[in-house]
Amino acid sequence: MNAAHRQPAEPKFEPLLQFEMEMGTFLSDWHHCDQLSTYMARMISHNRTDPLRHSNFFSSALNELLEVSFRGGSPEGRIGCAVYRHGPKERVKISFPCPAGQRQFFREAVARTHGNDAYARYLDALSTDLAPSREVVLLDLAINFDAEIRLEEQDPPSITIVVDLPLEGIVS
C-alpha cells in the first residue's frame, strides 16, 4: 500500500475513568443514568480549562448515551463505560448487551449521523415526532455536541458505541 492509501494514524487516547456494572443492576433504577453521568463528568472535567462548564456539557452528552443503553439494553450481562482523552477531545466507549434485533437498528442510526441529511432529519424529528427516538438522540449528539460516533461489534451480544466529543473546544 502506498502512502496515499494509508489511514491516518489513530490518535492515542489516554484512559481517564471507567465503570462496569451488572446490566440488571443498572436497569433497576432510571436515576443511575443521571447519577453516573453527573459523577463521571465531574471527575473527568476537573483539569479542563473551565471544569464547571465542561462538566455540565459532558454530563449532558453522557447522560443521553446512558439513557440509550438503558432503553435499548437487555438485562443479562454487564454494562461498561470508559472515558479517554486526547487533547481537546474525550472519547466515551459504552458497551452493553442488546438483543440481536437491535443491532441493525444501531448500525443504521449511527450511519445516519454521518449522512449529509443528518441535520434535516434532526429538524424533521423535532418538528414532528411525539418523543425522541434513540436515532434522534444520536443525531442530537452529532449536531449539538459535534460528536463523531461509530459502532464496534466484536463481542456479541454486546455492542459498543464509541463517541468522540470535542467539548473543550466548544466550552472554552
Partner: peptide, 17 residues
C-alpha cells in the same frame, strides 16, 4: 436550566411548536 434530557426537550418543544 442546568440539564434537560431529550425526552423533556422534545416534550416542551412539541408544546411550543
Amino acid at each position: 436550566l442546568a440539564q434537560m434530557n431529550n425526552t423533556a426537550f422534545h416534550a416542551f418543544s412539541r408544546v411550543v411548536l
